[in-house]
Design a protein around this nucleic acid. Structure first.
Lengths: 341, 341
DNA sequence: CTGAAAGCGCTAACAT
DNA sequence: ATGTTAGCGCTTTCAG
């Protein structure tokens, strides 16, 4: 029976006839160690099947080589919207390239979310944090800023002073969507978004208003509705609007919601796009296959993930950073859910 | 200027007039500490804003309260298929409930995947591992088994001895899909799956063969094709089949691939379902919105995640485990992509 | 019920 | 170029 104790740096040191610190340096591939000793140490590591203990390493060096990911609200919900996997895909590409692992917090609500962040930061489990979406009411951002802990947020925070963030130009994107409808002859344009708790909703509402204004159209309260980010939310919002107004076009700030909007439109006896044109946001994979295929604003979700990870890692490595934020471009994808009037 | 040193267990001990070990016991809520001391220590922790350093804790106790997630192949690809986010959703629900965090490895290929696992296991960064999909060629499973490291794999491994796993009855599921087509009068049924490197592909191929056999139909090589798990893979597979055979129905073991199959069918001048019926697998959200809406086998992806996490955690907590594997039920979702002949 | 002390496995001054 | 020596912050015998 083999009682296989864990082989540590000491065992390697002994076998290679060097000091533990030398082994440590070899692991870090320090240039101040002679080629010969390195070889000798490598050989010893090989023979003993040595592998560094990352935890001990972290404790001593205060570096974890891992990035914390904070999902919005419940992790469970987050994975339901294709937006998040896509952002994570971007993040994981960069993390992999830069040799970072990813620690996912699993939280269920606002309090737990805060808890999760504290656990990561004070627990010293990560080198930096990416916040996947900011709410205006978020107390996390000031907290992290005060802790002087490196983090970047996806989505421009209300108070962006001293915080690094990555986002689209949401005002511009929303103007783009609205103008598209206006150019196609629409005058009564509805606007459906997620809760105004989210800065992104606020900004897109502004973009919508601006587009109306610049085209001499008047803003009408009854054409605007907020609901939760889900198919059902979109459905409910559109039902409410159709009960009090007659839009010919609608801007919906989330494709998943847009599916609900389409469903509501049909349920109310209208056709898409013949009676009502719809433009969505995010260009999720589903939107190309919807019926009709959805015209939508592609916000480069993948890129949002890429850039946020790059920005965070640049910060961690104390690289020169040009700006404390990055704007990722959007583009309008024309499909079949809009028509001229 | 405040030089805020990290407050440690020692500071708390000093302030509460106890020994560090006592503070440690209070953190663990040991019953051998008097109520009074506990209160005193809690107060001191509160006042100093103390928070345990998880890394130091892990080093000393050899427990991380973290589960490692190993994605198949590249993490990037994984996030492209809705299957994985959905599994992760299930895992995260349980992890959250049981107070575990999730560590995601970011790997790009087979070697890096192995590297990632070693880094997690030998680096002592996680208490257990969930393997999100097994290939027949997987050397990870024997390795983990030999290391006696707790892990569970989603997808029955080829050699399941001594390994814990969670899966559907893939043979049965595939029979279900194939029989459905047979019952609807189809005789020439094609079968498209991912690489036979995956046990799941093998099993589903077996199920398909069994269904044919039990119904007196002969298996034809030219009706079978393997390709990668993507829309494009499905497209290519179907193109190849249509160049040499005339199926009236096809079983595709992945919805994303099924979309490609539909596209190929149309490109070849056939209609779905009038000319060719299609049954998919996974019931991803997209499949309900496809054109036509896809009839598919729902494999309870979310449940797969739930069960795998529960099984792993039960193992970590040395709970009684009834069986070393869990079979999650499937069901057929009838939509519009199939028709009787 | 609590304290003292020895690690956990590694890194990082500081020497040499 | 390499060794010595303290820790990193916590847990855990072992005493008492």
């Amino acid at each position: 029976m083999v009682m296989r104790m864990n082989v540590t740096i000491k065992d390697v040191a002994k076998r290679a006839n060097v000091a533990p610190s030398t082994v440590s340096r070899v692991i870090a591939d320090s240039p101040r160690i002679s080629k010969e000793t390195k070889e000798r140490v490598w050989k010893a590591m090989e023979e003993l099947g040595y592998y560094p203990n990352a935890i001990a390493r972290s404790l001593a060096s205060k570096v974890t080589n891992t990035l914390g990911l904070i999902m919005p609200r419940s992790t469970e919900e987050a994975f339901s919207n294709p937006f998040f996997p896509e952002v994570m895909r971007g993040i994981s590409v960069v993390a992999h390239r830069e040799k970072y692992d990813l620690l996912l917090s699993t939280s269920g609500n606002k309090e737990e979310e805060k808890e999760a962040v504290i656990r990561m930061v004070k627990g010293k489990r990560v080198d930096g944090i990416i916040l996947l979406s900011s709410r205006t009411t978020d107390e996390l951002i000031p907290w992290l800023r005060d802790e002087k802990f490196p983090f970047v947020v996806i989505g421009k925070p209300l108070d962006a002073r001293g915080v690094y963030w990555v986002d689209n130009d949401n005002i511009g994107a929303s103007k783009l969507a609205t103008n598209y409808l206006i150019k196609h002859g629409h005058r009564e344009i509805a606007f459906i978004s997620g809760s105004l708790e989210y800065v992104v909703s606020l900004d897109r509402l502004d973009g919508y208003k601006l587009a109306l204004e610049e085209n001499g159209l008047t803003f009408k309260r009854e054409l605007v509705e907020q609901e939760e980010f889900s198919e059902d939310g979109g459905y409910r919002a559109m039902m409410k609007i159709l009960e009090r107004a007659k839009p010919t076009g609608v801007v919906v700030t989330d494709d998943v919601m847009a599916f609900g909007v389409i469903r509501a439109t049909i349920d109310k006896g209208f056709r898409v796009p013949e009676d009502i044109s719809i433009v969505g946001f995010n260009n999720i994979p589903l939107s190309a296959f919807a019926n009709p295929p959805l015209t939508t604003i592609d916000i480069s979700t993948f890129e949002l993930g890429i850039k946020s990870a790059e920005l965070l890692i640049a910060r961690l490595k104390q690289k020169e950073i040009e700006s404390d934020h990055i704007i990722v471009p959007v583009k309008l994808i024309e499909r079949k859910s809009c028509v001229s009037r």
